[in-house]
Write a protein that binds this DNA or RNA. Structure first.
Lengths: 195, 195
DNA sequence: GGTTAAACAGACAGTTCTGTCTATTCGTGT
DNA sequence: ACACGAATAGACAGAACTGTCTGTTTAACC
């Protein structure tokens, strides 16, 4: 039951925005009664938070599954292939977290607290991937790629998936510059003209 | 009168979102009567469109004024200083256009049509600046910087202005790579081993 | 001074929204 | 058979929203 409500909310909230969709629409979509919703979630804000939580869980497992078979050193670049695939999926409507943050002004809102967490998680992943590539200046490079990631998603909303490809290209250039320009931190090896 | 209404709408819409702010709030803020608003704007959607139009006009003139004294060849990078200053301004709440696009699902909404125009304008500026720097692969570089620009703004909403600085750094690296890696387009004329 | 356009205050209709509450039904385990 | 937890339908309150309309006031112009 909770799942049915959450999935209905997920579809509607993502397609139209949390503010544009009322409780009644969610109930109709889930074919559920109002009391069920309020007994499970307490109030709409908590339903929104549950929606965000759900999206976060999906994103994390999707990303983890995507990078798993990729050699750690290539993940920082290849994650942009994941972005391209995402923005090209048929009902892509932007990043649900970016949209919630835009709609909900209060940074203390439960949904925004979750979004902030996810943000930390994503930055940690980029840091990890960049370090795995054995590049110097890892922190700087990781946050630069994070910004590129954000830009790829938001720009694709208006401009289509070509922006995600542009971001991938830029990420490649940055990584190339970091690898070629200066020495790598670990292992002597010689610099591999990656991608 | 129209201006007073528009400025009130601008303040409230930008601070809280166009959907969160009702007509009555705008009227109270402008100390105006309802009839005034509806005779000037017709309906709320048109007020939202006027708000977007206003923000676009501000952005264009602000950007133009900012780059005017900067040598054309440096503008593609220095525009990121403008972004840093913007996201550090005290009541920065993200990009008003990105937020409206997130709120308004219908791409045919008057406000979204205006936003799409502004998008073209901005991309054209980046192309112009990159070309002025005399770099090869201008289109690719321009759209990459555009994505970086978008990412700088959206990422700064959650992470603060350091992301705008990260974007500036990344832009510098990309421009350096484009300038150093291969020949510049003008003058020398030797064959460029592209990509 | 009289005309006219614009702004004013605010009532009003009609809808939508969140959240509460009552009363009923269903299914399961004992 | 029975009890109990969970879901159901839906009325209801109270607020907020958009948009319309009426009647009044203000101010500029001839």
């Amino acid at each position: 039951m909770r799942d049915r409500l959450l999935e209905a909310a997920d579809r509607l909230f993502y397609a139209e925005g949390t503010r544009a969709v009322g409780i009644d629409r969610v109930l109709a979509e889930a074919e559920a009664a109002k009391a069920s919703l309020y007994s499970h979630f307490g109030c709409k804000d908590e339903l929104v938070a549950a929606y965000v939580q759900h999206r976060i869980a999906l994103a994390r497992s999707s990303i983890e599954a995507f990078v798993a078979p990729i050699p750690p050193g290539e993940r920082a670049l290849r994650i942009f292939d994941w972005v391209v695939a995402w923005v090209e999926s048929p009902d892509f409507m932007g990043c649900p977290l970016q949209r919630v943050v835009g709609e909900v002004v209060d940074a203390g809102h439960p949904a925004r607290v979750l979004a902030a967490d996810q943000r930390d998680w994503l930055r940690a992943r980029f840091t990890e991937w960049v370090k795995a590539a054995g590049l110097a200046n890892a922190q700087q490079l990781a946050t630069a790629l994070l910004v590129l990631f954000d830009g790829a998603v938001i720009a694709s909303v208006q401009d289509g998936s070509r922006r995600a490809r542009d971001a991938r290209w830029a990420a490649g250039e940055l990584l190339k510059a970091a690898a070629g320009g200066r020495a790598e931190t670990r292992a002597p090896k010689l610099r591999k003209p990656k991608q």
